[in-house]
Design a protein around this nucleic acid. Structure first.
Lengths: 170, 170
DNA sequence: GATTTTTAGTCAGTATACTGACTAAAATAG
DNA sequence: CTATTTTAGTCAGTATACTGACTAAAAATC
């Protein structure tokens, strides 16, 4: 595949001792770079609002369980948007904190069904308000229309690539 | 700080055996959840385009050095949007791969100046085209106007919180 | 000039997120 | 029914990203 190569193009002004290859790339406009920075921001805001140490993926797991009853890891990770290894890690930590419990599925010995404990349900209920505050803080400075745009554009971006992530569905 | 507590509110329809606390939270519309999923997507696309194993933060460091000459870690991490520990980690791996080198700053013994090696400059030059392909792939499915919106909204989001991240500037 | 504070960077420890290899069980093919 | 394949989950290893504690050097203060 012929990589797009920038031709020399007779330049009018000779650049004074810059790098030899023409760097025509503004990294601050690259979606990946922006997403990474936004995630760092989100983590900072999240941590401020969850002094107990519950992380966003952990909350996503609790939320999926609160909505959809006991789930095996495969269904759980598709709801919480976690890959296999990460889901196992997150569940392991939630088990250690006694927020969820795991039991073998009698109908399928491969599956281990994850269930909220009473403590887990309480932490989820209390966390819901915090999660909403985090979302509000993230969107602070945007008007209603822009908030909707942010959500729609990110959802569209994901939708354009549905099936690429291993937990897919959608 | 009085946490917003959902009052019972005389409900017209009794919900059939749902969870006790009213779960009025759509996690698929939370910005943080969407950002995390988009980053997973970006990582998948990036890895496809960089079979050599160069990561996006690593490329960001090479790019900052290619643009701005030798830099100490503090300036470097503000350009590459990395916190102190992560920047040290990334630089350590780039040193191990011989893509950058570090020397003590004679003017300030605290600083260790990072510089591109010839190999690093070559990897950066070659990676620029790949990074552009990743960006294009991420935005595939969007029109010109929407692409601009995505970039502008994410930049605005970051701008609204400038100063919150420790590498700040901006 | 001596003390205090700030700054640059390291280090240990933890949490996602990934890969690839692996086990065990279920589903399918023959 | 047996052999193959698929599925569920684990495990080891690596890369960001963070916290908090720490060292050493520079800057600021007195």
């Amino acid at each position: 595949m012929a990589v797009a190569r920038s031709q020399p193009a007779p330049s009018a002004r000779p650049q004074p001792a810059g790098p030899l290859e023409p760097v025509e790339l503004d990294i601050s406009q690259m979606v990946g770079h922006l997403l990474r920075a936004c995630q760092q921001l989100h983590l900072a805001i999240w941590s401020d609002n969850f002094p107990g140490g519950l992380t966003s993926p952990q909350f996503a797991v609790l939320h999926a369980l609160a909505l959809g009853g006991p789930l095996n890891q495969t269904v759980l990770r598709s709801h919480a948007r976690l890959d296999r290894s990460s889901a196992a890690d997150v569940v392991r930590r939630l088990v250690a904190r006694r927020l969820v419990s795991q039991v073998k599925d009698p109908a399928d010995a491969r599956r281990r069904v994850v269930r909220l404990t009473a403590a887990g349900r309480a932490v989820h209920a209390e966390g819901t308000a915090r999660a909403q505050r985090v979302n509000e803080a993230m969107l602070q400075g945007f008007g209603e229309a822009e908030r909707a745009q942010v959500v729609e554009l990110l959802q569209s971006l994901l939708h354009h690539h549905r099936g690429l992530l291993d937990y897919q569905e959608d």
